[in-house]
Every structure is written in structure tokens, then in C-alpha cells.
Amino acid sequence: MRRSNALWRLYVAAFYLFLFAPLFTVAVFAFNASGFASPPWRGFTLAWFVGTGAEFGKPGVLRDRAMLAAIANSFEVAIPVALMAVILGTANAFVLERAQFRGKHVLALMMLWPLVIPGVILGISILAFFSRLANGLEDWLQRDLEFLRPGHTLMVLGQLSFILSLSTLIIAARLRRFDRALEEAAFDLGASRTRVLRTVTLPYLRPAMVGAGLVALLMSFENFNTTLMLVGSEPPLPVYMYGQMREGATPAVNAVSLLLMLFAGGLATVAVMVARHD
């Protein structure tokens, strides 16, 4: 009995080692003074973050134009996705928890669908549909609608297609726990519908809205499968990293990975704090 308990504990320890080994490795080799992210250790350097490229022929992340452009592209996609996920997700939450209409069950089920569709298929279907739309409109209007072709708009829409399911679930879960008596009290005190919404219901929902926004930001930043199908000439960070990794990446990719880990860790901490505050 005791020996099997020790074995169990040993296994759990090995499991956590396994879990963190790749992340630890990525972080360590971001500081290796070598042109390749491989042993041996050639000394500590910050060149892969701030170097000009004089030492290793390739600049560090913060001076690498292509890398900075990829980071900017990621933000340009992630911020609209997060904002729309919160606003539309809140509307959907009211549909699920408050509205009464025929076919609500079917709609509630359909809102979960995107989570069980492989991301690659979401990507190709949106690519194909919007191309047909663009071609049809081009014949009709006699001009090419650039935003319906692969690029920022399609990436935002593609990511939104499944991130909206998540934000809807998160916000609806909180709305379900809301005590309607609070709203009724406000109505009794003579408040209008909009005023009740603004001063009672939405403030109550705020932690869930912030949480959903942070989750959406992170999911957008990290999405690869759907985004890959919809990317135009300006790749966001994961697609850019993928290209670099296929060609044989320099430790600059490690450096940007470490920054990404810190960014994700920061967002996660804020999300946990918001959840605890509530």
C-alpha cells in the first residue's frame, strides 16, 4: 500500500516534469548565444530580444521588422475579435436566458456547434463562402471587394465563428445566476428599462464580460488552424512562427515565444483575479 502510494506520487511528479519540459526548454534557449536553438550552451545573451543582427546575422525580436509586423497583425485581429465576442456574446446570453420563443432549444444547441467543428473546416468553409460572395458582388457591382478575400476581415470572422460560442457560454452562465428580484426592485423604484440594464444588470455581468473578453483575446492570439486558411499577405504571429519553424527557426522564435508566454500568463492572472473579485 505504502509503496504504491510512493509510486503514484513519483508518477505525478514525472507528469508535471513532462508538462513543463518543452516550455522550460523554449525559454532557456531564448538566451543562448548561438545561431541555433540547440545545445551546447554558448553563454547568456539578450541578443535574441534586442540585438541588431551584428552578432548572429539575424536581429532580435524587438528589431525584427517582420516579427513586429506579425505581432501587430495579431493585435489588429485579436482586439476586434475580443470586442465583438463580448458585445455579441452578451446579446446571445440574453437570448438564451431571457427570451421566450419557439425553437429556442434548437438555437441554444446550434450555438454550441462551432465548438465541435474542426478549426480547419471552419476556415475552409468561410473562405469558400466569402469567395463566392465576393465573386457574386464583383459581377454585380463591377468592383472587387478586397475585404472579402483572405486577410484581416476574414481572419476576424473566422475566429469569431467559434470564439463567440465560448463568450456566449461564459456570459450566459453568469446571467443564469442573476437574482431577478434586483431588477424588479429597480423597476418598482421607477427606473426605465434601459436604466435598469445600465445600472443593475450589466454591472452584475461585468466580471463575466471582462473574463470572456480576455479568453477571446487569448484564443484569437493563439489560433492557428482556422487562421491559417484565411490568412492573406499579412500573417499574424502563430502563422508567421509556423513558417519560421518549417524553415529552421533561429532563437528569435524562442524569444518571441517567451514574450508570448509572459503575455498569456499576464492575461490568465488578470482573468483569475477578475473571477476571484466577483
Binding site: L23, V26, L218, P238, M241, V253, S257, L260, A268
Partner: peptide, 12 residues
């Protein structure tokens, strides 16, 4: 580890 991108983990 799953707050970090799949690509970072794969790189590791």
C-alpha cells in the same frame, strides 16, 4: 501550459 500557444509547445 495550455494558456501558451500550441506552436510554442511544439517548438519546445
Amino acid at each position: 501550459p495550455f494558456w501558451v500557444s500550441e506552436l510554442v509547445r511544439t517548438l519546445g
